[in-house]
Design a protein around this nucleic acid. Structure first.
Lengths: 342, 342
DNA sequence: TTGTATGCGTTATCAA
DNA sequence: TTGATAACGCATACAA
């Protein structure tokens, strides 16, 4: 077990001081070119690697970004993540990925950890809860920049990068209406979430715009969980049996709701048309064709990184940066469609 | 922007030294209970959090595990990952997730990063390449424990946690043979990979066992990429047109090969039966029913963590630990099957 | 152009 | 039982 080589080791070999080595390696201009060259050479030979822990202890800059992800099973999230770590790498940052699985307790632990290792910024899609608002504020007050993605953090004004949900919901619902559907349900998410409100509002907008009346009972609140959406959908279908389309809050909900529809021996899309937000590959498990809102998650990731890096490197007034909206598009995912684009 | 609270701050408030505070917080038994209590109280009030960078600078133990993942789009990998971070958390470790996207360059960067932040161990499913063997050895020689998962690292004897691929391939192929298929192709992965050999051998075993002759041309080497498998499958089908089943190396290959089959207007499973390793939700995008090998990825993650933590905490002889084999099972994934188990 | 001294936040080893 | 001091690996004023 060879000890890691440090500045000191290089210094000893060259009979100079660690300070000289440190400066030479970072190409400070008060070190001769010759010295720089020899230092770098022996550093290379010895396989020196800077200890970034020690470094960031002094610098207060770690070049680290924390990424807080709700669930790795939802392709929307993993695609955003991909955008984040690729763009971060391009900008000289390393992205540290953490998953909370929609659990505020987990989220708390992850946030504390990221704060503990002094990341420069945190990109977060927060779990539905207000348990961690204080923590987020504290972290922010320590100078760690925070940017939300996909989900606005209610009550705090961190910038958020997301799709235009109201418009997307309008377009998605309109598309379904154009297919001749008239009794459309909306399932998913509690009212307290901004995202849900936006989508519901877009859903309502479309009804108004096309002159279709809307029964309040068709808007079904529901947790973002498989079982919850399965049960809620089933209950709703048993109560109102002429529903001919369902717009779902997201991938998990769509999977649950779709399962319930199939369970009741209704066909998709013939009996009931399915729409969802996120273009999640999870939904393809149902083996049916459906409408979806592609929110360009990869792009969301990229923009989120650019935003936070701007915040970090301008150091100071990041409040100016406002929410950023990424264009969405409506797709019809045919069974068997063959692409590997997300 | 409030500075972070440090030991020194607490010490100042209580008129003691940082050393005392440090020991009190860690409940060293050379500090009075009373002192411990007051220190902890004010630490709580001030919102103190230890700086784990500084701590691990001294300890040489970071309680960090690095996880190197091939691709977030493959549910097998994300499920292993889930097993890893959940188990790590239980054992008091934090898992840092990194993705290499099957690119050895990326892998190198990630490994260097993990080494730079002094993780205690690295759990890796390496990209197919031998570019990073030297690096892995160096990292290992610095005392960082390494455990492979899913894929053995050729040429180095780090323990690996994986499914019994030969047996699984035997079972999968047997199942397909029992369905009456006789001209079965195997597509995917180059011979240089142990995993590929195991699966191919199991594939061959099954043919022998059931007395079915096997044409060498039916074993098609192919990269783990969508385009590659799509093209190879298409070429093969055009050359040999009575193939009635295809066993695919993994999810990406199955998706590519399946796409090629459908593209040629053959039906799955009627014309050609599809089998794959990994039970990847990606494959469900094809909208067809297929056989798969579920390798219990969640379990693989858990066992990998237990193995590496044992290595780390026994500090010393980890060589004793041998490869660990997780039971697999064959499943038939029906279109529209409704579960949320992976 | 190079070296010295000091500090980042923590812990460990002494001495008091 | 508590305090002083040095150290972890690195960076930065400042002195030489």
């Amino acid at each position: 077990m060879n000890k890691r080589v440090t500045l000191k080791d290089i210094a000893k070999v060259l009979n100079v001081t660690p300070a000289t080595v440190s400066k030479a390696l970072r190409e400070c201009d008060d070190i001769s070119k010759g010295m720089q060259k020899t230092v770098k050479e022996t550093a290379g030979e010895l396989g020196y690697r800077p200890n970034i822990l020690a470094r960031s202890l002094i610098n207060k800059k770690s070049k680290l970004l924390g990424v807080v992800i709700p669930d790795l099973r939802i392709s929307f999230f993993t695609e955003v993540t991909r955008g984040i770590y690729e763009e971060a790498s391009k900008l000289g940052y390393e992205a540290i990925l953490m998953v909370h699985d929609e659990n505020p307790e987990n989220e708390k632990k992850k946030l504390e950890f990221l704060s503990d290792i002094n990341v420069d910024g945190i990109l977060i899609a927060s779990a539905d809860s207000n348990e961690n608002l204080k923590l987020l504020e504290t972290i922010s007050s320590h100078g760690i920049k925070i940017v939300a993605w996909d989900r606005k953090i209610e009550g705090l004004d961190f910038p958020v990068v997301h799709g235009d949900d109201r418009k997307a919901a309008f377009n998605l619902t309109s598309e379904i209406i154009k297919q001749g559907r008239k009794k459309i349900a909306f399932i998913g998410a509690t009212k307290s979430i901004q995202l849900a409100n936006d989508r519901i509002n877009g859903f309502i907008d479309a009804h108004k715009h096309h002159g279709i009346s809307l029964n309040e009972n068709l808007i079904v609140p529901c947790e973002r969980k498989f079982e919850a959406s399965f049960n809620e959908m089933k209950k709703t279908l048993e109560k109102i049996n002429d529903i001919d389309a369902v717009v779902c809050f997201g991938g998990v909900v769509a999977y649950g709701a779709g399962s319930a529809i199939l369970e009741l021996d209704k066909s998709i899309p013939d009996d009931i048309m399915l729409g969802e937000f996120g273009d999640n590959s999870l939904v393809t498990r149902l083996g049916v064709s459906y409408y979806t809102v592609n929110q360009n998650p990869y792009r969301i990731g990229i923009e989120a990184v650019n935003l936070i890096v701007k915040c970090i490197e301008s150091d100071g007034e990041c409040q100016i940066e406002k929410d950023q909206i990424i264009e969405t598009k409506i797709l019809y995912r045919n069974v068997g469609a063959r692409t590997f684009d997300n």
